[in-house]
Every structure is written in structure tokens, then in C-alpha cells.
Design a protein around this nucleic acid. Sequence first.
DNA 1: CCAATAGTGTGACGAACATCGAACTAGCGG
DNA 2: CCGCTAGTTCGATGTTCGTCACACTATTGG
Lengths: 124, 124
Amino acid sequence: MFVTLLEVARVMTDRSLPMPAADDIRLPDLVKAVSDQNRLRIVMALADGEFHYIVELPGLDVQKSTLSHHLRTLRESGFTETQFDGRTCQIRLRVSELDARFPGFVDAVTSPSAQASVELSLAE
Amino acid sequence: MFVTLLEVARVMTDRSLPMPAADDIRLPDLVKAVSDQNRLRIVMALADGEFHYIVELPGLDVQKSTLSHHLRTLRESGFTETQFDGRTCQIRLRVSELDARFPGFVDAVTSPSAQASVELSLAE
DNA sequence: CCAATAGTGTGACGAACATCGAACTAGCGG
DNA sequence: CCGCTAGTTCGATGTTCGTCACACTATTGG
């Protein structure tokens, strides 16, 4: 019935940025999103499906505006959900939604052999 | 012992174009290869792992030099094997090698739901 | 041997995109 | 209230890349 001030405050601070509904996620968008190595590495780092502070993401060696661009691309493709938490923000892979829509895709892309081959590509 | 003329002729005509060894296939290359919609559709059309004449590929509405470029990209990424057969050529998805290296990846990318979402992207 | 056919390779062009810096916005702590 | 910090947005820039036309190679059939 009544919305408490605390709940209002929570809605205000824990905002979620716009992302496609689960049914609107399309494979071409996902594939394009991880066709960039930096974004692929981010997806791998989020494989556990938990929320992560973006400060803790693997060192990508890009400016913050570039990182913001990548996170937006991942979010708009349907890969991730981004939540504000005060001044910083958290991000998670939408594992269950993705797996329901394209079974096996996330697993394949975040598998150990996949990660190993990315490390190789980085090294050269 | 002896190589018959027929066998020689076969070797000469059934040339295979260069592609990476199974162990050298890297996920970033695969993902980048299917980040183009035309190439993604080709991969889907080859999902059965059999050799296909490239004339029978789905209508891509591109010039032959462009198609050749796409087929080269797919081949060099490790997705496909291309064999010359006289004046024309055949192509197949390297399903077993890909599945051994990145389990589930090909299945996920060629699944019915994946194909459906590509059709949707095409329609708009 | 010659014409037709199938595909490859190259160079050019335009669009898409990753990147950066700078300006802006919002929360947090004195 | 004021600076500091964390991210977003915008415009510019350079690069990557999909596309095409054209030239070239190789195979087949008369």
C-alpha cells in the first residue's frame, strides 16, 4: 500500500540502467558484443553470474570513457545488467536469461579453453 | 607403392585451402568471424558438418568477391574447410574439431533459437 | 586451342567502431 | 556547502572492415 521512505531511497540509489528484455536478446547482438577482445574478457570475468564492482574487472588498459562504452555495449546487447550502488556501480552477467534463450552459449564462451585461447591472443 | 594417374589427378584437383590446425583455433577469431551477419548465416547453413557446394549457400546478396572474402575469413578463423572440386568448390564446418576445442560453441551458435533470432534481425 | 565459367586477389571507398579527452552529473565526506 | 570521486555523454580521430569493380588464374567443354 504505502511506499516507505526507505524503499523510495532504495529505488533512487539502486537504479538499473536500461537493457533489453530477456525475450528480445538476439544472438547477432551478443556475438558482436564479444567480438571485441576487451568485452570478451569482461564477459569471462563475470562468468559466475554474481554482481561485480567494475573497479575489480581485469586490467583493460583503456580510459574510463572507453570502459563505459564497452559496458554499455554489453548491457544493450543483453549480456549484462548494471546497477548503481551509490557512487560506483555493479555489473553481472544475465546467466539464467541467456542460458534460457541460447542454451550453452555463455558456457561455451566462458569455458576454460576459451579463456586460455584469449590469454594466448593477448600475449602475442 | 605406386601412385596411379587417377590418384595423382585427384590430389591435383581436390586441393584444400590453408586453414589453422585444430589446436591453433582461437575463440576470439571464431567470435569475430561470426560477428558479421552474412558469415553467421553461412555457418548456420553448414551446421550439419557435411560438405556443401557454395552455390547452394543461402542467398546473401553480395558479389562473388565479397563472398570469397567471407569464406576466407571463416576458413582462416578455423570455422570451415574449403576443398576445390574441379572448377567449383565445397565447404564444410569443422564440427568435430571445433567441438573438441570449444565444447558447445557450434551447437549454441547454430541452434534453432539462434537461427530464429537471426531471421528476426534480417527482417527489420 | 579458345571461350566460358568459378573462384581468388587487389585497390578503393564508405561505414562502423574503438579510443581518447573534455565537459557534465551525481553521490559522498569533510 | 564544497571539493572529490565514479561514471556517463559527446565530439573528434584513426583504424578496422564489408563491399564492390576489375584483373587474374584455373578448369571444363566445344
